[in-house]
Amino acid sequence: MAFSLRALSLHAGNFQDRYSGTRSGWWAWFLQRLTGVALVGYLFLHIAVISTARAGADTFDTVLIILQKPFFVVLDLFLIAAVLYHALNGVRVLLFDAGIAIKQQALLFWVCMLLTAVITGVAGYFSLPLIFRE
């Protein structure tokens, strides 16, 4: 089969040409990848931060006090939202692998989004004292 890049490039010009999907199933997959990559990046940062403990308790505490300032508490809420979405959509995919609720995939995506928003909202509410302390 002649598989010429030039022939493909005729319609592989932009995002719209490459992806058919903008339906819920496609967004579920895209967000799963996006949060996944973000969480891997965070994981390495997280390990680097914790490893300051090797420089002694004082160094660790100095770093950690900075990282618990309001700005970082707000960033933590984004982290929680990413973890929640990734975990909930992970359960959604596990259900499909078990052959459950395949027909309800779109509904389940919105359930994931809703639960992510609600639980992040609750976590944010309880974190308010940390965000607005002097």
């Binding site: 199933g25 496609w26 997959w29």
Partner: peptide
């Protein structure tokens, strides 16, 4: 990765993703 686009566009309404999961 169960994106379900195939199932959505099938002109014969075949539940393709269900087949792959099967």
């Amino acid at each position: 990765h169960t994106i379900f686009e195939c199932t959505a566009v099938c002109p014969k309404g075949i539940p393709i993703t269900r087949a792959i999961q099967g």
